[in-house]
Design a protein around this nucleic acid. Structure first.
Lengths: 205, 205, 205, 205
DNA sequence: AATGAATGAGAGTTCATTCAT
DNA sequence: GATGAATGAACTCTCATTCAT
């Protein structure tokens, strides 16, 4: 800990905190626009209005900013997802409406920092630390899904809730990704509607 | 054509063909083991037992080998998938068995060149040409799925076959990826079994 | 502008200015001694006592240093020519003395950076940007020649001053080049004296 | 000699001679079109319809073809100049006409292989062997000029014939080069006419 | 604390020439 | 004699990181 403080500053003063935030913001923007590998530290520093030297007094290396950016991103995403989720009444008898809202929530959440998503996926696959960070995040998502399922347990026809949680979470994610990244000939609405049908059929009745 | 030949060699002699293949094999192995960006052309050439110069007489640049490796990979994968598929009787009344076999087919197919998958995903997200190549491949997968659905059309309860094809294809892919890449606390068998249940419930009564 | 600064450094600190100058000086020396194509960026950097990285933070590429070296060279040359010229009294009735002084001026001017001349000629013929830069310089020389001719207009027997300016400028240049580069059996003095005779005879009675 | 024959073949058979000529022709074309350094041996071989291997059994290295090309060029040029010159009557009392014809001869001669001229100048300045070859050629030109001057000796007003020969030869060459290479605002006719005037005034009365 | 100049290893790529077939 | 595959040294350029001021 004290060794680390030797290297990078843990901001205590207001100005310091603002500078660090400025760097994270600038990095987020540049990573989203041009990608992690296509952005260099000089550019991040310049965009944040600081010198390269300063950059390295706030972050040990380039990866460190990415991780900070990622944490910010995760927090924002989680907050948004939670905000949407809180509106959902999981005892709503109209399961179709319920799941549609759920899928919409995730879709809308992903729309923040749309450009960052791609970079995140690349980094997830390239960097072990990022993999761990995100796996924890995904795991949290699956657990949350599990909790939701458990809340409405008695209405469900499925028995292996844990497996179902993963299945539901990943299916939705996959379709959300298809909608966000992949080209496809059919409309978002049709895709979403089929997804919801499948999930309702799987979970309830 | 003749201008292109000035740059890269089109193998004419036996020796030449073997060299090109050796380079592709070596590249495949190194990309799978260490990743595309962590592998340099010198290493590929050395692993193939040729000089850097030779490398560049067969491929314009590093991307070009990746694309050749990818084509090989796609061909192999497609052949394997098709081999598995041909064994499936789509009129088998036991839909559970049918879909289990289907999922197993994809899982087994993906086991070839397991390490290459990750790199491919990274490249898919990083390189526009690779994106296009793979999008075409995915589209082919969706279309094949659609054709299978259409073959057993009268047994299906769904109506939007096109959307369903995407949904089925992507759900299976997502779970296959989870199994291949992500850590998870529950067994592959439970996950697969739930997936099959969901799909059977969705597609057939 | 700001995008350019991202690539090459515009010297701000004293140290920076000195480094850039050191690189230009080193490049000039090496280009003169060994030629442009026989000199590589590593050597220039080493000779300037800096790293290759530094080299590339001041110059986009090798051509860029050459152009800077050339600008320095042109400035020096022009200053020298002008210094010599200013001593000439164009109304001196002894036209022989006048033109001898003129030729001597150009000869002496060319003696600076004697080795660089050859490289410059090569680059002039090889690189379009250098061609343009030097054509502008030559044009300036011809125009200056024209102005001198016009100053003593009423003493001249020629009528097409423009063509005469080119002719005079190029003849002198050619002989200066012969003296500088080509082997020849006769003395510089004889050559110079004949040249002056020819020009006096051509321009004045 | 015998050592050289070991390396490159001295063609004795018809086919061999033709092949060698084909290589020289192809090289001449490519050097003229793209320049010496922008042309590689593979391209020369291909353009001549032979393999790279064959190329190296006719020429020790790339420079060797250039030298052969240059010899061809010099021979052709000399033949053309001589053909033009032979038409000139050096006792023609109209000296203006005489010199105009002379200048035209050189201009026309230079028009052959126009593209090759530039490359030749570059090589002249870059390669010592080429320098020597061409210096010999230039020297021959000056000597020929001297001989012409001596032929009409009694009509000349100049006394230092040797210096005059150089001066005349170089002045004409310089203006021919200006016309061929450099941009200039005035017409070729005016330039030529002034040049002739200057030379007539210098050489005769 | 802050600046921005300096570093240097390492990447991709070219091509004259050699050599096995 | 001919082919064209193979060689490998050499070159240019980038950028995360350090360090003098």
């Amino acid at each position: 800990m004290s060794e680390m403080e030797d290297k990078t500053r843990t901001p205590r003063q207001d100005r310091s905190i603002k500078t660090k935030e400025a760097i994270v913001q600038a990095a987020m923007r540049l990573f989203s626009e041009k990608g992690y590998h296509q952005t260099n530290t000089k550019q991040i520093a310049a965009a944040a209005g600081v010198s390269t030297g300063s950059f390295y007094s706030y972050f040990i290396d380039k990866r460190a900013v990415f991780i900070d950016v990622l944490k910010d991103y995760n927090d924002t995403l989680q907050a948004r997802v939670e905000a949407y989720m809180s509106e959902i009444n999981f005892h709503n008898p109209d399961k179709h409406a319920l799941l549609t809202h759920l899928v919409d929530s995730l879709l809308l959440s992903h729309e923040v920092y749309i450009g960052f998503n791609k970079e995140l996926s690349i980094m997830y696959l390239s960097d072990d630390d990022i993999t761990q960070l995100m796996d924890a995040q995904y795991e949290a998502g699956r657990i949350r899904t599990l909790q939701y399922l458990q809340m409405g347990k008695d209405e469900l026809k499925i028995t292996d809730l844990e497996a179902a949680a993963i299945l539901v979470f990943e299916s939705i994610n996959a379709i959300v990704d298809v909608i966000a990244f992949s080209p496809h000939r059919i409309s978002i609405e049709r895709l979403k509607s089929e997804l919801v049908s499948m999930l309702v059929g799987y979970l309830y009745i």
